[in-house]
Amino acid sequence: MLRQRMTVEAFDLWARGQDRDYEYIRGEALEVVSNNYSSQVGILIGGMLAVYVTQNQLGHVTGADGGYQVMGERYITDAAFVSRSKQPQPSREAYNSNPPDLAIEVLSPSDDVDRIRIKIANYLAAGTVVWVLDPDAKVAEVYRPGQSVVVIDENGTLDGGELLPGFQVRVGDVFPPEADV
């Protein structure tokens, strides 16, 4: 996995010429790497979100190549929602200069949890709600600015709250069953 130090200005120019997705975290360009199962979880929750947001005309949903500028860094979330009130039109930027209202991060074994913690803190500082989905523990963690962290097990419900009123999904339903072998 590529890891290279550069300034954010250099990153913005450099990232445009790359075939792969990169994030810019604490001064380093980092390649985004997932695995198949985490990708499935990401597209499942992202798909549910996209359907809901489209039907209710609430805003825009991006997938695992949607980039955002967050507190001066450049992040790519597995799925994200930007409200229509924050941004009436979809952004055409490689990294949207508006941080999302909601960012979803699906953990994968190659993730550096340390790096995700930095991302979460910067998201919170930017006013973004973060849902962390942990496929191993089958739990969702909800981080909201200024509020205590909520951990929801697979029988619990992820609720869109004020951000996505009426959106509800059972946590277990975002983790596709693994085949019995």
């Binding site: 913690r117 981080y143 200024g146 962290v149």
Partner: peptide
Amino acid sequence: RPERLMIKVGNYLAA
């Protein structure tokens, strides 16, 4: 466990 530290930092910030 880094996951625990992530939750702790989130709660410290909230407080």
